[in-house]
Design a protein around this nucleic acid. Structure first.
Lengths: 176, 176
DNA sequence: CACGATGCCGAACACGATGTTCGGTTATTG
DNA sequence: CAATAACCGAACATCGTGTTCGGCATCGTG
């Protein structure tokens, strides 16, 4: 037996409402009230499905992860350019999710998604703990993603991916 | 005329209360109520000095920035090892500030502080925008800092600084 | 297609946190 | 010592939260 249609409808309405409100006013400013009005759902109903707006966010991110994973597995080339390209398609949503303006709360969650991809594709470097390496690559990815969406939104995904390679390769140098 | 002693006392009490509460229960869970009780300050008094707990946090971070800047300028060696060493001294506070457990809200703010240091010390690499480079280095620093405080708290500052150099140098490689 | 189950509505409620106001008290400065 | 400035504390309106309940609709199944 499949999921009850009413359940599916309610949850979809709330997922959509969350995205719409994130775009409109940013995640931290969203209240459960807003979600109820936007999704046209009763208060009791909301709490029958989710325990809080954070819970709703967490489950939404599971969907994002699946979508990203699917986008990557469907592509021939490198995983990073697949991600950048996919992000470019849905730029407004991801800009709101990853950008500075929308708050830092979500970045950690998205970052964890990326770290998952990275962990499977590491060529271990001796003397650097594997977990740190995964975190490092995910961090560089997130930094670049934020910068791209915030400051250079017209850049092509290929160009961004090339920058990604150069940052990872250590082309940036400091004066000590 | 200097600052009124009562003003100084009140603000100091609130700064200390903020740190204490961050250590005890994490930043997001803190309420203004908690701060009032912890600092033993009247409600009206709090709002005479700060507009919200976010405001209090922002001003506290200005103090952190000054402390870090002073720690760096007082050191002979590289800025990064100065920062790592200083952080090691006040590990519990920074662990709560930068760690995953305390939430991601604060990381952006601390990151901005670090980015300030970095921007002045870049050796520009051709073809990579300077702002991205600064963000990149600050990002790598924050990633490493979080990993250190969360996962390897017993590591020596020098060892961490060495890892910092190797991450920046591009020793981490991926299979595409 | 009909019936029992399941999900939804909407209103009401207690609770806790916010940010403001005001009159009275205490500390500071010069 | 006197004027000034800061603090207290209590009260208040407002808002968001999370829960409860009875009545209504929609669903999947027999």
């Amino acid at each position: 037996m499949a999921v009850d249609r009413r359940v599916a409808r309610t949850r979809a309405a709330l997922y959509d409402a969350l995205v719409a409100l994130i775009l409109r006013k940013g995640y931290p400013a969203i209240t459960v009230q807003d979600l109820l009005e936007e999704a046209d759902v009763g208060r009791a109903t909301f709490y029958a499905h989710f325990t809080s707006k954070e819970d709703l966010l967490a489950r939404s991110l599971e969907r994002v992860r699946d979508i990203l994973a699917e986008a990557v597995s469907r592509t021939e080339g490198s995983w990073s350019i697949a991600l950048f390209t996919h992000v470019a398609e849905f730029r407004p949503v991801y800009a709101a999710l990853a950008g500075i303006a929308a708050g830092d709360v979500l970045r950690g969650a998205i970052r964890r998604v990326v770290a998952g991809f990275v962990a499977e594709r590491l060529l271990p470097a001796p003397g650097i703990p594997a977990e740190l390496q995964a975190q490092h690559v995910a961090g560089v990815f997130m930094t670049l993603l934020s910068w791209w969406l915030d400051r250079r939104p017209r850049l092509e995904p290929q160009a961004v991916d090339e920058l990604f390679g150069r940052l990872l390769a250590g082309e940036v140098r400091l004066a000590f």
